[in-house]
Design a protein around this nucleic acid. Sequence first.
RNA 1: GGAGAGAUGGCUGAGUGGUCGAAAGCGGCGCUUUGCUAAAGCGUUGUAGGGGUUUAAAUCCCUACCGAGGGUUCGAAUCCCUCUCUCUCCGCCA
Length: 423
Amino acid sequence: MLDPKLLRESPDLVRAAIAKKHLEVDLDAVLAIDAAWRAQLQEVEALRAKQKAANTAMAALPKGSPEFIAKVGEMKAVSAQAKEREAALNEIEAKFKQAMLSIPNLPHASVPEGRTPEQNMVFSTHGDVAAVSSAAKPHWEIPGFEKLFDFGRGAKVTGAGFPFYVGDGARIVRALLQFFLDEDVKAGYTEVNPPIFVNAASATATGQLPDKEGQMYETTPDQLYAVPTAEVPLTNFFRDEILDEAVLPVKRCAYTPCFRREAGSYGKDVRGLNRLHQFDKVELLKWVHPSASYAELDLLREDAERLLQKLGLPYRVLLMCGGDLGFSQTKKYDLEVWAAGQQRWLEVSSCSNFEAFQARRAQIRFRGKETGKVELVHTLNGSGLAVPRVLAALLENNLQPDGRVKLPAALVPYFGKEFLTFA
RNA sequence: GGAGAGAUGGCUGAGUGGUCGAAAGCGGCGCUUUGCUAAAGCGUUGUAGGGGUUUAAAUCCCUACCGAGGGUUCGAAUCCCUCUCUCUCCGCCA
């Protein structure tokens, strides 16, 4: 959520930001609701002040005295009026809140202009795309693929997009996760193993609710949500808390399976490991001082990049343009790995700064050491990394003419052998 | 799953219908004393929203907040209802 004061005081700034994201929001309507809300609030508060004053006066009067009884009669009317006004206030307040939630976060000045994904800026490219393309084919066409990644039985047991990982398939997933977590811990992130179901309050704080509930799996009797990413439980860890400035930045990483309904997906995007309803991911999260959040974003991106470098996978970094930024992000880098068999880039990490947008909604604050004042933290997150697409690239890029997959040296200690085989 | 007890500020804990945003203690912060530390004394001490004032900070006024939401009442931390969570005992279980 945006700071209502910012909207009130600099509506043109907000207007320009919305234009940069190529979104449509009726700001004038929001401002009108805000003005009406404040007027109503003042009326209600005046009535309450009257009630309080009367209450103090009545406490000094003898209970049954004529003055007391007269006062009760008088205040009965005030009470009724206050109740009526409060109901009106609540109604307009709900409207205001909803209107505020419809306003996106403001893109950072360094975010390029643009409307479509094609207009994202290629920030950097690493590794040789041509060098890995020798025996490549889409990973789902590799002979024996179904033995290790059993989509058919997954579909029988659960549904499409829920594969079984078998033998070397299971082993490579475990190796990647362990590798990612170890590297992230080395980079200073504290490892966390969070709950993989969250309640509605948590899903609301990170913005999955109210409008993205269609993306989450929901449990029926208990109304819990299967996490779409570890970002949700991790961000909510400090919900409604005031941190000590000295602990910032807080850096944490967590592995969870991620559950996404992905309604409406189709075609080559969903072939093989490209898009699943359940997949494994390590998420990186930072809570930082507002003055440091952009420097921290670059460090976060570098932490994610290092993983791809150590795996020897060619990748590029995109700096997302205004139109391709998410609703709540101010700046975002996507890491895309080259999948030689499919001849396409696959997104494996998305590193974003949310500034205070999530923190305001989740009420995550810190007390300044010097000032003693309470301020909202800035939150950042990014994948470090998502397993299936990294795996897809690994299978396609490193496939040998003999049908085995040669693993990068960094992974060998985790996997226990040099080659993955489909036999 | 069954039975009982409870939830109050950074923490402990008092408060069972009115001047209570809330005693007291601890902690924190400031000052004084002291060679430093410690100790003692005095003072201070939450969050949010709105408004006035100000270039701004400071400050002032009002309102809300005693687990959450509803209700009763002129008036609720206090009474009633619903929910959530915690603790104790029993049962079950990896």
